[in-house]
Design a protein around this nucleic acid. Structure first.
Lengths: 345, 345
DNA sequence: TTCGTATGCTTAATCGATTGAGTAGTGACA
DNA sequence: TGTCACTACTCAATCGATTAAGCATACGAA
């Protein structure tokens, strides 16, 4: 096989030669800085376009000018990732914003938080990324002080109250809780169970608070919080446990769609009609909710837009804006598909 | 606020100073090349470990030594991505292999193939990646000759027969088809419908071929191929259409889990019992299949392992191995969950 | 005419790692 | 003692883009 010469990648030196000026002049021209006449600039830009010049990220990064790359580490067991629709939508939203600005996304999947931190350190030392997204915010999150110390530009995806002063995008869980509880109140429910996720997550905590407050306000008793690991099985057993109790709730709100599905199955399986005898609501929507029978009512967020907001914010941080304001961007909307009904008497 | 000095990232020069040798010597030592005494090497490595040195990818890339980055472009509408469990599992599998080798994954989501190609060009010109994965292989795929011309190391994810001579990892769809049809034959089915995906995809073509051949061998009539866009709605309408025909099939094989789900719903909805009167099988498994009632029987692949194989192969290509053999790595396993039954008479 | 000074460039250094070419120093051997 | 071969280094150039500093040329004003 003949050795095929790969097409040479054009550099500014090449453009300089063809334009009859120095490399420095080309750089000024390409970056829209003063120092070249309009005529020369035009000629240089024309040549650059012709040869299809693209700046070398490597050279720019070496110069200290940034890598045009943002980083996202996902800490999950690989097997679980397939089921979680969140990240793919989130990534898609990020992409929409950053690719328009010429940024790319560096993705890493790690099995544990320790290696996640290790990755941040290496990315920073090797100048691989200009900034990172930190997701899955936990109570007293160990990652925040370290990331802060490293000095890596960051946007926290989670409640701003818990972001240790770092810029954050969160979702307005209080509003979501209100919407959910108001609907349940309208339907006459007096006893509602809230089945949450792992205790360590900030949003588990925030949601519990919000639900309790909304319950107080509306005269609804929020009973028996149960922490789950978000699995279908956990939803099933939580449902059984709650229904077996002395005074079972008439509605259940699950922090996650999988657990809600498990619950619907469990209820239906033991002859409890949904939504006739039990109303079920999933916090966080997913395509799964639409596919089951009955289709799951859910608090739905635009995850893609959420990602886009996070990306916009991180780009601002990277650009050096000093006063990037944390926001609660994502607002959940109650989508009633068929598992919400009036409280049985 | 006081200006916080970011911790300086250690360079080879720093190590050289602390070790009392030149930067060149440090480089030799760190890369395990001859030119330094064992004693000096040990001292240098010790210092490097102490200061936490990490090689600058930027500098290495500039030198032409590679970027330790692989690229994956996903061409999909952002909204669809959430439902597709494939990519997340695939990415997880890739990660497992490449992160162990110090490689990272650059991810881009583009809405159309044109911008996908543009991304490849830019990545190459800017030296952002050492190699790429090309997925969603199409018949007469326009991307292959162009990627080949650019000279970008590549692994095609799809049938090797159609990879234009480029190294490829595919799945053994013929074996899967045989497994499926043999089971259906055992169950006494004589008329089976095969509902495929978009015609342009290679695997649509390959699977149709395989199904036809298996049917011939086993004396099963494969009827009425219907091309769908993989949506639930398409599955629903395909099912109705097939059941309305003069001589309806007793089993349906869907190239995709969503369409299969739509079909089960459609059948159940019109009073056709699954699997009593109609057997349904999904080609390509997903968590969705386990969550519905009845749970969908499927041809299940280990997508994560598939990604791992692709990554291993791409790393070999990047390393310059000249004879990287294409393989059909992924083997589907028939998982019977409850939508397969004996043919009604 | 001569001194600013503004314009439009060129030069050279820089970022961090790599590597071919050079150079001390040591020891062996004729 | 001279020289050949080695070892263990150092030196300097390189990759591509950026940018401070320098340097002609032209133009206007005194």
């Amino acid at each position: 096989m003949a050795m095929r010469k790969p097409p040479s990648r054009p550099t500014i030196a090449e453009i300089a030669k063809q334009s009859g000026v120095s490399a420095g002049a080309v750089s000024y021209a390409l970056n829209g800085r003063p120092g070249v006449s309009d005529e020369t600039r035009k000629r240089i830009l024309e040549v650059a376009r012709e040869v299809g010049w693209v700046p070398s990220t490597a050279a720019r990064a070496l110069r200290g000018g940034g890598t045009a790359t943002l980083g996202l580490v996902i800490t999950r067991e690989p097997d679980v990732l397939g089921i979680e629709p969140f990240f793919m939508s989130f990534v898609a939203g990020i992409e929409k914003v950053i690719s328009a600005r010429g940024y790319a996304l560096l993705l890493q999947v790690t099995p544990d938080p320790e290696r996640e931190l290790q990755t941040y350190r290496e990315w920073w030392s090797a100048r691989r990324v200009d900034g990172i997204f930190v997701t899955d915010l936990a109570i007293d999150d160990q990652r925040l002080p370290i990331v802060n110390e490293i000095g890596l530009p960051v946007v926290v995806v989670g409640d701003p109250e818990y972001s240790d002063g770092l810029p954050a995008v969160g979702s307005d869980d209080a509003a979501a809780a209100n919407a959910a509880m108001e609907r349940l109140a309208e339907l006459g429910h007096k006893r509602v169970a809230h089945i949450t996720g792992p205790e360590r997550f900030v949003h588990t905590h925030v949601r519990s608070e919000a639900m309790a407050r909304a319950g107080e306000r509306l005269g609804i008793q929020v009973v028996a919080e149960v922490n789950t690991d978000y699995s279908v099985a956990a939803g099933t057993s939580a449902c059984h446990q709650l229904l077996d109790a002395a005074n079972p709730p008439t509605a259940m709100v699950f922090d996650n769609d999988l657990t809600a599905l498990g619950a619907v199955r469990a209820a239906t399986g033991r002859g409890v009609d949904v939504p006739g005898e039990l109303s079920v609501l999933a916090w966080d929507d997913s395509p799964l909710c639409e596919l089951t029978v009955p289709a799951l009512s859910a608090l739905s967020r635009d995850v893609s837009a959420y990602g886009a907001d996070a990306a916009t914010m991180l780009l601002n941080v990277v650009d050096g804006s000093t006063d990037v304001k944390s926001v609660r961007s994502s607002v959940a909307r109650l989508v009633d598909r068929g598992t919400l009904g009036p409280a049985p008497r």
